[in-house]
Design a protein around this nucleic acid. Structure first.
Lengths: 216, 216
DNA sequence: ATTATCTATAGATCTATAGATAATGC
DNA sequence: ATTATCTATAGATCTATAGATAATGC
């Protein structure tokens, strides 16, 4: 009677907790670039016995792959919290880029894991790539962006997003809003908007993202 | 009497050859992302005995560091072959970016090593970073580029260069000149040039770079 | 009774060196 | 005679598992 019986048993929850601890440890090691550590070090960091590792993963490679996978889907989850009824596709793209840029400091570990993979962030079907492509194409068709090759457009868009992340991590003193919005407006101009129009879009109010709901 | 005695003895040359073979093997492994391989595999790839490894490097980490270092300085060497008397700093920047972009396919192994380090390409004092900063600042002072924060400018510049490299490697069918020059003009526009002016600069003739002189 | 985790360790692998061999210098 | 390289391997480390213990389910 006390609610629906939790479909995940306590066993499942314990298992999930352990798995999450291993993945989090792996993410930390990815961020530090220490992929060569023995499995024992991963398990110590996760505070589980070494034998437990093999209950969850068959090898170190498999764990690291899961750690990246997990970062990607957490990132995508945060992004999904951001779909409202904007109709101008240029404005929609601008808003997504500005919000994505703000995720670097909001979710530093996830951001750093993805940045450590460099390019992977944009390549995955779960990353920002597909969304951005869709919005850019729409803006081009609406005559808002210059009608250039999509791959070429993505070079500037994803390159800027990745380097923006590095910059925000390297210079904690830097003003986040100013930096993200400045870079966004540079990207919009590269895509074909007039500078004044780009800056107008980047000055619009943003919905807040406390979208850590559902994460770790 | 047959010329100046070569200051590098045959010993030195043999040593250098072996070291170069080890570094090249390491670069190949970096490109493949296989940093975890045993030293034995590196030496087999370089076709030297395993004991020889320790004549040159104290550890795998030291070798990989040298491999990256080497890629960086080969890259810088290629870039240095490109200094003529252009006076317009915007034109100078445009030309450097276009030439640097063409290096990805001209020196694919070096390019891939640096891309595998992601961000390192731009951060090193030998990379394209310092040059680009100098040229951009000059163009800003000459009123050719928008007077924006240098770090912000570099986000778009280095981000685009890195993603451009990935794109050129991933899509061998893509037309190199068209892609590089297109991205360059997007970057110039982001930095503050008018689109027409940017395209004009990117249509100017380029000196060829057979600058592999001194490499490999 | 079942499932997850832990501890302990056999066997596999890897590192780093010692001692032998090959190449160059004088 | 000197220097670089090679082959062989002792000792250190790591992986992956077996068997014991702890937590949950019924």
């Amino acid at each position: 009677m006390s609610g629906v019986p939790t479909s995940t048993s306590r066993f499942d929850k314990r298992r999930a907790r352990t798995r999450a601890a291993l993945i989090e440890a792996a993410q930390g090691l990815l961020v530090e670039g220490r992929l060569g550590v023995p499995i024992r070090e991963v398990t110590e960091r996760a505070d589980v016995g070494i034998g437990t590792f093999y209950n969850h993963f068959a090898s170190k490679d498999e764990l690291f792959a899961a750690a990246i996978e997990s970062a990607l889907s957490q990132w995508a989850e945060s992004l999904d919290a951001v779909d409202d009824g904007t109709t101008d596709p240029a404005a929609l793209f601008a808003r997504s880029f500005r919000l994505t840029g703000r995720l670097h400091r909001l979710e530093p570990q996830i951001s750093r894991v993805l940045l450590s993979q460099g390019h992977a962030l944009s390549q995955s079907p779960d990353g920002m790539g597909p969304r951005a492509r869709r919005d850019i194409r729409a803006a081009q068709e609406a005559g808002r962006f210059l009608d250039m090759d999509l791959d070429r457009a993505m070079v500037v868009v994803t390159g800027a997003m990745i380097e923006l992340g590095h910059l925000l991590h390297e210079r904690p003193g830097l003003d986040e809003a100013e930096t993200v919005d400045g870079v966004t407006s540079d990207v919009l101009v590269a895509l074909g908007l007039e500078r004044a129009e780009a800056e107008r879009l980047c000055a619009e109010p943003l919905p807040s993202i406390d979208a850590t709901a559902g994460l770790g």
